[in-house]
């Protein structure tokens, strides 16, 4: 009896390891296959070129603004000061370097380099990543707000509120996000900005905000349906208990119903926000230089598409994975309570 049991256990264990090995072999085969195929078309992998698109060193050149002669080159610790004597007086240029490329007595024309020093700059991919994060966070914030209001309107008995919410939700859920982004930018954006100019306001709204609006309203419609379902899943007795204590509708919603509903819809909400981060890659088409647009630009200049698109995908994965980890942590914390 006992030996039969241990035999079965060891068999289970063995088959587990066999299938785990199959998985890793499969994964390895995919990677090897990819490299082999790339080798067939003579693709040269240059991973070492990738970091410069995150962070790079730029040589900053200090240039002369006037014609004249170098009157003095003086060093002060790690700084250099170059004084140029021109017709209209002296000009002094300082740079945080000991590397002056001119010496006293040199003839200088406007635009000549006096000194240069290296400086670290944020690369285009990191800038794009930042725009993606920024757009996503703003859109998630407004998406939640819009979703809560639309969800409450959706279950309201007031026909004006209810029908507005239904129309909004159906319109948004029934059309592609790409088309919505075009409408926000090319239709609403043109209208708003042209009107602003005609009114003589002098400022126009940059494309980023139309992109954020498109994402926020898109997400809001889905959040609204989740909020509606969440609220309806809370037992009627909760509302009755709160109302019987004299709380009004808003107090009941804010203190009793929404906290419970939001906790319950946290997992689908997280899924929606992960979608939003990925959908923000569409914003490149209206000239917002988020991560995908930035990658596309780098690909056209660097001609390293394989590495760059993998890096781009990995960056999105990092964003979505950290979001889902964070939500899981929040869920565990509220459950522990």
């Amino acid at each position: 009896m006992n030996s039969a049991l241990s035999l079965r256990k060891s068999r289970q264990k063995r088959s587990y390891f066999i299938w785990a090995t199959v998985f890793f072999l499969f994964l390895g085969a995919c990677i090897v296959g990819l490299y082999y195929a790339a080798a067939q078309i003579d693709y040269v992998w240059r991973w070492y070129r990738i970091p410069r698109y995150f962070y790079y060193q730029e040589e900053v050149e200090i240039k002369s603004g006037i014609d004249g002669e170098v009157a003095a080159v003086s060093f002060d610790g790690e700084n250099v000061a170059v004084t140029v004597a021109g017709d209209g007086g002296d000009e002094t240029y300082t740079a945080p370097t000991r590397n002056a490329v001119v010496s006293e007595g040199d003839m200088i024309f406007v635009g000549d380099t006096l000194a240069s020093y290296p400086q670290w700059r944020v690369g285009i991919l990191l800038l794009g990543l930042w725009i993606t994060i920024k757009v996503s966070i703003i859109a998630i914030f407004f998406g939640i707000l819009i979703g809560i209001f639309a969800g409450l309107a959706r279950i309201s008995h007031n026909p004006a509120l209810k029908w507005s919410a239904v129309t909004y939700i159906e319109l948004i859920r029934g059309s592609p996000l790409l088309v919505q982004i075009f409408i926000w930018y090319f239709v609403l954006g043109t209208l708003v900005n042209t009107l602003l100019i005609k009114q003589g306001v002098g400022v126009t709204i940059p494309p980023l905000w139309f992109g954020v609006a498109a994402l926020a309203f898109f997400t809001g419609a889905y959040v609204a349906e989740m909020v509606r379902a969440g609220i309806q899943s809370i037992h009627r007795g909760q509302t009755e208990a709160a109302r019987s204590l004299g709380m009004n509708y808003v107090q009941t919603m804010v203190h009793i119903i929404l906290p419970q509903a939001m906790r319950r819809i946290m997992p689908p909400l997280a899924g929606q926000f992960i979608s939003l981060i990925k959908d923000s890659s569409l914003l490149g088409i209206i000239a917002i230089r988020e991560l995908t647009k930035a990658t596309r630009e780098v690909v056209t200049t660097s001609l390293q598409p394989f590495e760059l698109w993998f890096v781009c995908a990995l960056l999105y994965l990092i964003l979505t994975f950290s979001l889902s980890m964070w939500v899981q942590y929040l869920e565990r914390r509220t459950l522990a309570q």
């Binding site: 037992h235 007795g237 909760q238 009755e240 019987s244 204590l245 004299g246 709380m247 419970q260």
Partner: peptide
């Protein structure tokens, strides 16, 4: 009605405590 309800307490069959 909210003023009236503060003067009229109610206890339910299913307690309806706020679980959060």
């Amino acid at each position: 009605i909210n003023m009236i309800r503060t003067e009229v307490g109610m206890v339910f069959q299913s307690f309806n405590l706020f679980p959060h």
